[in-house]
């Protein structure tokens, strides 16, 4: 439903002399202007996303300073293997996404669809591994509010026999660590789910021939979103899994 197109001046009827490409919306003067506007809009949106995650990163910074031993003990409960695999999977998906943008730019529809589907697959693998990790947290009673016990933190962690068990009041604070863990990775996973849903729409439209007709800004902008979600994880992984590993 494009009311812009309907609402042209009376004399103006779309004609051959106005050889506008069909994807040029009527309120823009040129394709260049339209492309610049949409990529600028996307960067601004990513800025709002940075502020959105920024609130949680600020909370992380504060609580890590306050409850350092609890954060160490908490991060010792995460699986570094799964975290590393997931990081690799996500970087791989950023690569396939970049290839999808490249395929759209070179007007290669088959490659575009293949790379989009690969990106979806890698995104789903990431979510699968993440939900396995969540499941493990549930079994180990590390979910604050719903299913939490300090048991693992007031006793010696067999994987890290050098760690001293925490005193009870500090062990309680691991709930803040896990609250942040679930809020941050949960928000990240939600962004992945939204991304995958959009990818599915993009694949369907790409089948219909969109994006390989020279109008690549949708794919480019989605690429920016996908890389952004990837970068959030690139920060989450060291903060939650790595930096407390060796004291």
């Amino acid at each position: 439903m494009d009311s812009q197109a309907i609402a042209t001046s009376p004399e103006h009827t779309p004609s051959v002399e106005h050889a506008h490409p069909p994807y040029l919306r009527h309120h823009f003067e040129t394709v260049e202007q339209q492309r610049e506007a949409s990529s600028f809009g996307m960067w601004l949106f990513l800025l709002t996303e940075i502020m959105f995650f920024g609130g949680m990163f600020a909370a992380y910074l504060i609580y890590r300073n306050w409850y350092y031993p609890a954060f160490v003990a908490g991060s010792h409960q995460l699986s570094i293997v799964l975290g590393t695999i997931n990081t690799a999977v996500l970087i791989g998906s950023s690569f396939t996404m970049a290839m999808a943008v490249y395929s759209a730019e070179t007007r290669n529809r088959k490659a575009l669809i293949t790379y989009l589907l690969l990106t979806i697959t890698l995104g789903l693998v990431f979510l699968g591994i993440k939900s396995d990790e969540y499941h493990e947290k549930w079994e180990k009673h590390h979910v604050p509010g719903l299913n939490f016990s300090v048991h693992d933190f007031v006793n010696v962690n067999p994987a890290y026999p050098d760690d001293k068990p925490l005193p009870l009041d500090m062990a309680e604070k691991t709930q803040v660590y896990f609250s942040l863990y679930f809020a941050m990775t949960g928000m990240h996973a939600l962004h992945m789910i939204i991304g995958i849903s959009i990818l599915i729409i993009l694949v369907i439209k790409a089948y219909g021939g969109s994006y390989t007709d020279g109008h690549v800004s949708t794919i480019e902008n989605f690429g920016l979103y996908w890389h952004f979600v990837d970068i959030v994880w690139i920060f989450l992984f060291p903060l939650l899994y790595l930096i407390s590993r060796h004291q």
Partner: peptide, 24 residues
Amino acid sequence: VLGTPVLAISLVLVILERTIGIGI
């Protein structure tokens, strides 16, 4: 653009705290 997302995340955390009981 810069302020409202921070309100959004603080409300999300309040909602998560009321519904599932995280402890931020």
